[in-house]
Structure formats: structure tokens, C-alpha cells
């Protein structure tokens, strides 16, 4: 069953047709990668899923319900979490507090006027947060500030925040962008581990072919705003259309 369906989505910025009649469906429980050369519209498409951008035409359905016109926090409350290209975390807070906020959002909803509760006494939330931080392999002192972490650890923390919400769909926007090969491999292993323990559908926007072919069950290739091919990884590799789309850039990879 398709958990996320994109139907005839188009988006234009002034003279630039960023998305042109995109159709896509993501199967529940799968890892679906969206790849494409720079400027193919990958990020624009992702922003249409999370309420950042409104498509000009077409619809985005999550579990059969339209996501159009919904605000980012509403979409998250439906069970869609996202990881940013550069890790977005709360740098002024502690590592533990970062994850606890996500867990609070899951338990208490978009707003709760909990003025006289005590964060200290929320042992359930705290335990969940600690367990997930352990799962993603963050070994740092959890009461330390999140600002001094390495980029790889920030990525782990951001993933922990998403996982603590037990999402139905996890969107990953270039999860290995700007990482060294060793960090990239560590992230791939982590994502594989997460897939083994949590049954979460994932959509990965990625540039790095290595990452995509190690993780994805299915790949959609986006070029100039349209999906040119949608197939299994083994069939994508030799596809002449894909080669054409990447020509000139494939050598750089």
C-alpha cells in the first residue's frame, strides 16, 4: 500500500519550472530514494511534502489524506518527521533536552499549556529519550550542550529526535551531505540498523550514489522537474536515460 502519493505536482518559481507534473508513490515499509542531478527539483519536492511549499497544481496524499495547505507542525503531528540537509538542532539546550522536546511534542501535541509540570519529573519521557540516544550510538554525556558536537553526532541527534516521535514516514534530505567517506559509511550503517529495529517508511533525497544503492528498495530519478525513471536499484544502474541525465556530472562523483 502506498503511504505517500504524489499526483501531478507542478511548481513554478518565476520563469523556472522547478517541478513539472511529478508522479510518485512510496510503498509502506520501504526505503524510497529520490535522486537526480543538481537543480532537478529534489528539495523543492521534499518541501512540498512538509508544508514548506505549496504546489501550484496536483496533490500530495499521506495515508490517503491531502497534505496541501497544512502547516509543518500539523504534518509532523500526522506522523511525518524530517531530517535537514544541515542538521537542525537546539544548540542552546542539552543533548537530552533536544530529544525530550521531540518526545513531548509526540505525547502532548502541538501545544500544551503545561506551566507547572516539572521537566525533571517526566521520567517516562526521559527514559524514552535516553534509550533512543543509546540506540543511535550517541555516547556523549547527555547533559552536555548540543552546540559542541561534531557534524556526524549532530546528525545522530537529529535522527534520535525524529525516532523518539515514532514517525510513520521519515524524510531524509541528503543525510550524508558534506560528510567524509567514513562518516558517510557510519550513517549508512546507522540507517540500516534503524530500518532493522524500527519499521519506518523512509524517503531519502540523495546525491551520493553509494548511499542510495546501499539503502534504497526503490529509486525515482528526477531530472528537470520530472520523474524520468522509477525502478529497483539494480535496474537503475544500467538505464540509459539515467546516464543521460547525469552526463557530465557522473564523472565528478
Amino acid at each position: 500500500m502506498a503511504i505517500l502519493e504524489v499526483r501531478n505536482v507542478s511548481k513554478r518559481f518565476g520563469g523556472l519550472q522547478a517541478l513539472d507534473d511529478v508522479n510518485l508513490s512510496v510503498e509502506e515499509g520501504s526505503i524510497h530514494a529520490i535522486i537526480g542531478p543538481n537543480g532537478a527539483g529534489k528539495s523543492t519536492l521534499l518541501n512540498c511534502f512538509v508544508g514548506r511549499l505549496m504546489p501550484d497544481t496536483g496533490t500530495v496524499l499521506f495515508q490517503g489524506k491531502s497534505l496541501l495547505g497544512k502547516k509543518p507542525h500539523e504534518i509532523n503531528q500526522l506522523g511525518v518527521s524530517r531530517v535537514f540537509q544541515t542538521p537542525e538542532i537546539f544548540t542552546d539546550l542539552t543533548i537530552l533536552e533536544n530529544v525530550m522536546i521531540a518526545a513531548f511534542a509526540k505525547r502532548d501535541g502541538a501545544f500544551s499549556f503545561n506551566l507547572f509540570g516539572r521537566v525533571k519529573k517526566e521520567t517516562e519521557i526521559r527514559d524514552t529519550a535516553e534509550k533512543i540516544l543509546h540506540d543511535v550510538g550517541l555516547k556523549e554525556q547527555l547533559t552536555h550542550s548540543a552546540s559542541a558536537m561534531s557534524r556526524g553526532d549532530k546528525r545522530r541527534l537529529e535522527l534520535a529526535m525524529c525516532l523518539s516521535q515514532d514517525p510513520k514516514l521519515l524524510l531524509l534530505d541528503e543525510p550524508t551531505a558534506g560528510m567524509a567517506r567514513a562518516d558517510t559509511n557510519a550513517t549508512i550503517d546507522l540507517l540500516k540498523e534503524i530500518s532493522a529495529t524500527h519499521n519506518i517508511t523512509k524517503v531519502i533525497i540523495e546525491h551520493d550514489m553509494h548511499v542510495v544503492f546501499s539503502l534504497a528498495d526503490k529509486i525515482s530519478v528526477l531530472a528537470q522537474g520530472t520523474v524520468i525513471v522509477e525502478d529497483k536499484p539494480e535496474n537503475i544502474k544500467g538505464n540509459p536515460k539515467v546516464k543521460e541525465a547525469y552526463l557530465g556530472e557522473a564523472e565528478g562523483e
Binding site: 509543518p72 507542525h73 509532523n76 524530517r82 537546539f90 521531540a102 516521535q165
Partner: peptide
């Protein structure tokens, strides 16, 4: 104060 954007995408209004 730290990151309003992240908070929105974490499901908080």
C-alpha cells in the same frame, strides 16, 4: 529562542 524552524518541524505550534 534556539531554533524555531526545527521546533515547527518537530510538531510544535
Amino acid at each position: 529562542k534556539t531554533n524555531q524552524n526545527r521546533l515547527n518541524y518537530t510538531g510544535i505550534n
